[in-house]
Design a protein around this nucleic acid. Structure first.
Length: 248
DNA sequence: CGCATGGCCCTTA
DNA sequence: TTAAGGGCCATGC
């Protein structure tokens, strides 16, 4: 269409423009392998701006950003290892289009370690808006850079996996590939256990916290709420910070 | 213990 | 300016 040619023309002009101009006008894209199939990734000089399955990528990008796209010769620094390992700390992100709230949500989600999960309410508390739980879900649904911001590691407080921008099934696959024992989490949730404590350390954790995984069964105690764990004399783990959910 | 309900808050139309 | 609705949550049967 003529609109596409106009955009392509603008992009070509922008590509030859002085430093800094290009990424205010356009973006580049590459096709890369991802954990759930081939992905296309758009980026600017500021970092990765968009991650989307190959199917429908260009249309979705245009709808969202309304900017021209040019193919890139090579992926941005750190992208391939980030997607291969699921640890994305080494890749820069371009989140300039987002609201402050959305950026806060994504930054909090980025703190969740590989192989672990946290509730939506944990994110809400972490960014200082403990009641904005639904809004957190909305912000994650709009995450422009899934996988790099691991929104698949945000799950529901009742133990269910919850929804995902690429579908709940993909979320489960990603988590299992990271070593999250969903079966065990479901079993615990069935017993209404959402926190695990150790009577040797006196610390209470989220079940997937790497500190919780090492608790010897004989010393492990499950709790339904953080308040109950506290009442039993446990203090919240400083690594997984379950206190974020129920401050006080 | 599964389901319904009211609550909350950010974004968009 | 307002209103509606969403990757949720806590509570109450």
């Amino acid at each position: 269409m003529t609109e596409d040619r106009l955009l392509a023309g603008l992009a070509a002009l922008a590509a030859d423009a002085p430093d800094g101009l290009f990424d205010r006008i356009a973006a580049r894209w590459v096709s890369v392998p991802g954990p759930i199939g081939e992905l296309r990734v758009a980026f600017t000089d500021h970092g990765v701006a968009y991650v989307h399955p190959r199917e429908g990528f260009a249309e979705a990008f245009r709808e969202r950003f309304g900017r021209p796209l040019l193919p890139a010769a090579r992926p941005p620094a750190g992208l391939l290892p980030a997607l291969r390992t699921g640890r994305a700390s080494g890749v820069r992100l371009d989140l300039r289009e987002l609201s402050d709230f959305q950026r806060d949500v994504l930054e909090a989600a980025r703190e969740i370690p590989h192989g672990e999960v946290r509730p939506y309410s944990w994110i809400a508390a972490r960014i200082g808006r403990p009641r904005a739980v639904r809004a957190v879900g909305t912000a994650l649904a709009d995450n422009p850079v899934p996988l790099l911001v691991p929104c698949h590691r945000v799950t529901r407080s009742d133990g269910a996996v919850g929804d995902y921008v690429f579908g709940a099934a993909a979320k489960e696959r990603l988590l299992m590939a990271e070593g999250v024992d969903l079966e065990r989490l479901r079993r615990l949730a069935g017993e209404r256990v959402f926190y695990l404590a150790s009577d040797t350390t006196g610390v209470v954790c989220f079940p997937t916290c790497h500190n919780a995984r090492r608790i010897t069964p004989a010393h492990r105690h499950g709790f339904r709420t953080l308040a109950q764990a506290r009442a039993a004399g446990y203090r919240p783990c400083r690594t997984c910070r379950p206190a974020q959910v129920a401050p006080e």
